[in-house]
């Protein structure tokens, strides 16, 4: 029997993976992937709790997040392509032109 807890645990595991990815990766593209994982981990949580309470608000919210994530990827990838064409690298340590 799969209960709400399983869904939430899955969501937590995915979120942790995403978080580690965001922190450890140096490649901007992978950073973007990790962000997608984070968002979708949250989506799973929203959908599961929505089903559990019989309230559609959570699922609606998940749809919004999907829509936002899609547009974010579109814009982000576009920027990254431009950046790669200019610099030939996506290593974030090389993006330090502003520091205190």
């Amino acid at each position: 029997m799969i209960t709400l807890s399983h869904y939430l645990i899955l969501s937590a595991i995915l979120f942790s993976i995403g978080l580690v990815g965001v922190y450890r990766r140096k490649n901007l593209l992978l950073l973007l992937f990790s962000t997608e994982i984070l968002l979708n981990a949250v989506n799973i949580g929203f959908a599961a709790i929505s089903k559990f309470y019989g309230d559609l608000t959570g699922q609606m919210f998940a749809f919004f997040i999907v829509a936002v994530a899609a547009s974010e990827v579109a814009v982000g990838l576009g920027l990254m392509i431009v950046w790669y064409k200019r610099r030939g690298t996506l290593d974030i340590d090389s993006m330090q032109s502003m520091h205190g």
Partner: peptide, 17 residues
């Protein structure tokens, strides 16, 4: 605290964490 402003994305994400 000005060292915090390194401009390095990873560092800043860590501070955010």
């Amino acid at each position: 605290s000005r060292v915090v402003q390194s401009g390095n994305l990873s560092n800043m994400l860590r501070w955010m964490g």
